[in-house]
Structure formats: structure tokens, C-alpha cells
């Protein structure tokens, strides 16, 4: 890069060098220069970082935090006849007494319980690929395939497969078991939808696991093999400890995915039914805002969902930090 005294870049650079030499030398330099521009240039440099982060900060404040606060504020107003009036915590009281919202919260708990399964599936499959089971190259691409399909398409495909007179039930009846109303039985439907969600999204987690495996020291695996470890022992004593950070990362992202991206599947597969058994907060918010014309109640539900996510996020960050310390 050509260097010229006239460019401000160079001037700034010179100033930083001076600063590195110490305050005293800078004072001397300023006295020598005796130009009125020098202090201003110095102030500009101090402002520069703020100017540089300002766009990002303004976007976060203006388009994220401010609407968030408006939403929270809105949740303390009424709907319908009481539109725009302050109603205190009425919406939250309504929410807690609404059995559908209770189901939605219980389902969040169920998702948290099913989280280990959602993490174990890609984890195990990635392990098999890592251990080079026959055909592992094919599996690697096949497993990722569902991740590129939109939830609406996945939902429609499984609607057909899981219909009461659909292929899966024919298969089950073929081996002598009674048909199951996969999407019409309140006891089964939520598990079905979660199962389909795992099927549709595990490809992404699988890729993360494979990336984690690439950092695994192969000599450890070789050593375990030489010592005559079984596959189960190898997974338990070598792979899981070595990949603990990857596993935690997948836990965090999978939980967020479950809470925020199951709307499409629920919308297409069950419409929240049967009997409200597949409601999640997200779907509840949509129904209250759009179908029931209760936007303020929907805001209250959004606030609750936000708090749930916040708590989960904090817990997970704490876990990750602890894992970081252990390293």
C-alpha cells in the first residue's frame, strides 16, 4: 500500500504508534505539530468504535428490543371491548386458567424430556458414519436430505403416510397389530409430530456431530480398538467424553429448534388437535391473534414464551460456560 502523509489512514496509524510509545512522547509530538486538527482527530478516533457499532446497535434496539418492549406493554392492555385499555395482569390470569395454554406449556416440558432422544438420534447415526459402517458415504448424504425440505412438505408427506388408511397402518395391520390413529389420538399425536420433527431436522445436528468427530483424535479410537473395546464401550468411554462440547451445542440448538420451528408441522399435521393435545405456545399465539382476535392475549403468551426461552438460554449458556472451563 502506498504511504503518503496526506492520507488520514496514515495519520491515524502514526498517532497509534505514538500512543504506544507513551504519553510523554505523544505530548511532545503534539507540541511539535501545533496543529489545531490533532486533538479533533484524537476525539474522532475515540468515537470511531461507537460509530462502527452504531448501525448494529440501532438495528437491535429499533427492530428487536423496542418492538419487544411494545409487545410486552401491549400484553397489559385488553382485547375486544376493552381494546387499548390497561387491564393489569388480566391477560396473564386468563392464560394461566386456559386449559389449552396449560397443555401448550406441558408440551414444552414434554419437548424438554424428549430432547435427549432428539440429540441421541443424530449422535448415534454420526457415530456409525464415523466408525465407517458399510455404506457410510451414502448414509451421510441421505441423512441430510430431509433437512432441506420445508416443514409444510414434510408435514404433507407424513399426513399421507400416517393417515388412518395410509401405508404405515396397512403395514402394521399386515403384521397383525391394530391400526393406530397416529394424528387423531390425543395420547399419540404429540409424539408423532415430535418424531416427524426429529426426522426432518436431525440432518443438521448430524453435520455438527460429524464436524465434531473431525476434531477427535483418531489415535484414541485406535488405542481403544487395540485394547479390544466394544462399540458400546468405545462410544461411552471415548467418543462421548471427547465430544462433550459438541453434544452440548447440539442440545442448545435442538431445543431452540423444537420450540421455535414446529409451527409448520403442527399447522399442517394436526391443527393443534386432537383436543388441543399438540398445542405449543407458538401455535397458541397464532390462534389467539388470528383466529380468536385476541392480540393482547397473544402478546401475553408471547411474553411467556420469551421468558421460557430466556430461562432455557441462560441455563444452557451456563452449562456451556462450565464445559468451557473444564476444557
Amino acid at each position: 500500500m502506498p504511504v503518503g502523509r496526506s492520507t488520514s489512514v496514515h495519520s491515524a496509524g502514526a498517532e497509534w504508534t505514538d500512543e504506544a510509545r507513551g504519553l510523554a512522547s505523544r505530548r511532545r509530538w503534539e507540541a511539535r505539530a501545533e496543529t489545531p486538527r490533532a486533538p479533533r482527530r484524537f476525539r474522532g478516533d475515540r468515537l470511531a468504535p461507537y460509530v462502527l457499532v452504531a448501525p448494529a446497535l440501532l438495528i437491535i434496539l429499533g427492530l428487536r428490543l423496542w418492538p419487544l418492549l411494545l409487545g410486552v406493554n401491549f400484553s397489559f392492555t385488553g382485547d375486544g371491548d376493552r381494546d387499548g385499555m390497561p387491564v393489569g395482569l388480566d391477560n396473564y390470569a386468563d392464560l394461566l386458567s386456559d386449559p389449552v395454554f396449560q397443555i401448550a406449556l406441558r408440551n414444552v416440558g414434554l419437548l424438554a424430556l424428549l430432547l435427549p432422544v432428539a440429540v441421541a438420534v443424530p449422535g448415534l447415526l454420526a457415530t456409525f458414519i464415523f466408525l465407517r459402517v458399510p455404506g457410510h458415504r451414502v448414509f451421510r448424504s441421505v441423512y441430510f436430505f430431509p433437512a432441506v425440505l420445508s416443514p409444510v412438505i414434510v408435514g404433507s408427506i407424513f399426513n399421507l403416510l400416517l393417515a388412518f388408511d395410509g401405508p404405515l397402518n396397512s403395514l402394521i395391520e399386515g403384521i397383525g397389530l391394530g391400526p393406530v390413529d397416529w394424528l387423531g389420538d390425543p395420547k399419540v399425536a404429540m409424539f408423532t409430530v415430535v418424531g416427524v420433527h426429529i426426522w426432518a431436522t436431525f440432518g443438521m445436528a448430524l453435520v455438527v456431530f460429524l464436524a465434531g468427530f473431525s476434531t477427535l483424535d483418531p489415535t484414541l479410537v485406535d488405542a481403544a480398538r487395540a485394547d479390544g473395546a466394544t462399540v458400546a464401550q468405545m462410544i461411552w468411554h471415548v467418543i462421548i467424553p471427547a465430544l462433550s462440547r459438541t453434544i452440548q451445542f447440539v442440545f442448545v440448538t435442538t431445543m431452540i429448534g423444537m420450540l421455535t420451528s414446529m409451527f409448520g408441522l403442527i399447522y399442517v399435521m394436526t391443527s393443534g388437535g386432537p383436543g388441543g393435545s399438540t398445542y405449543l405456545p407458538e401455535y397458541y399465539i397464532w390462534v389467539q391473534q388470528g383466529q380468536m382476535n385476541r392480540p393482547a392475549l397473544a402478546s401475553a403468551a408471547s411474553t411467556v414464551l420469551f421468558l421460557i426461552m430466556l430461562v432455557m438460554g441462560l441455563v444452557q449458556i451456563a452449562l456451556l460456560r462450565r464445559a468451557g472451563r473444564e476444557d
Partner: peptide
């Protein structure tokens, strides 16, 4: 960790707000 904490504080403060319809 700080960000969520700031957010939570902001929310608590915002909770004192009133209707804006």
C-alpha cells in the same frame, strides 16, 4: 450472560407501562 440480564431488567421496567391503543 449480560445481554439476557439487561433484557430481563428492561422487561421488568417495561411491565410498569400502560396501554397504548
Amino acid at each position: 450472560a449480560l445481554w439476557p440480564a439487561v433484557l430481563a431488567a428492561a422487561l421488568v421496567l417495561a411491565g410498569c407501562g400502560s396501554a397504548s391503543g
